[in-house]
Design a protein around this nucleic acid. Structure first.
Lengths: 124, 124
DNA sequence: CGGCATCCACATGGATACTG
DNA sequence: CAGTATCCATGTGGATGCCG
């Protein structure tokens, strides 16, 4: 993994460019952080493998999210076999460079969020 | 600022509870990270003050976002004067505890994202 | 100043079924 | 296995205007 991926040029909503807004626009979608986290933890994965790791996602949404992440240059898709058909998703260098961000999010969640109990579950 | 805010119990989409998914559901909306960032940087702020700091947001969306952040226990709203009407938004201890996450996002954005040039701007 | 009301367009995501 | 197709409900955000 290179430690200096190419920079990404992304336009941003406001009038002034803001690194936080822009970063949020990259990973601020519902499933993006989890997908990146799984790819960081488990390494390159196939589609259904990823679908099982990312609990609760539908194939359509996973497909959409992966396409989005590819466009943003954070994820690579590689067809590694035609028959049987096999695909590999992996992080680009830029995607992998998000590791500190993702692990801060995970750490924060573990420290400050409480796992719902059975009774919480019943009320949902 | 206390260093051990109360834990927050949040339900999460999938079948298994996941700290990343849950954290993402808290700060994964378009403007939330910026709002938190501004409150961290500039301290407690009034509504319009915040609106100017968060560049490009409309009052409706800021209002919605702040309400959401209050419900999630990350932001406090305090009416500090009736006439003239003045309100103060500040981070709760839990909200302030997000500082490492937010600053990682900001740092990542500054390191790996490129500010668009004038010509980029022209094509948008 | 600090919003809320209204309206509307578009994005997002979930369920289900089907395909090469 | 790795998706796509379709449909549909809800969410999200932007514009504008008004109010105490």
């Amino acid at each position: 993994m290179s430690d200096s991926p190419e920079k990404l040029s992304v336009w941003c909503a406001g009038e002034e460019w803001c690194p936080i807004t822009t970063t949020a626009s990259l990973i601020g979608k519902k499933w993006h952080p989890v997908i990146i986290h799984r790819l960081l933890e488990n390494g390159p994965s196939g589609f259904n493998e990823l679908k099982e790791d990312v609990d609760g996602i539908s194939s359509k949404v996973l497909s959409d999210s992966l396409e989005d992440l590819q466009e943003k240059g954070l994820v690579d898709r590689e067809v590694i076999n035609e028959q049987p058909f096999r695909v590999n998703y992996s992080l680009t260098d830029l995607g992998a460079s998000l590791e500190p961000v993702i692990s801060e999010m995970a750490a924060w969640g573990q420290r400050y969020l409480e796992e719902p109990t059975e009774s919480d579950e019943a009320t949902q």
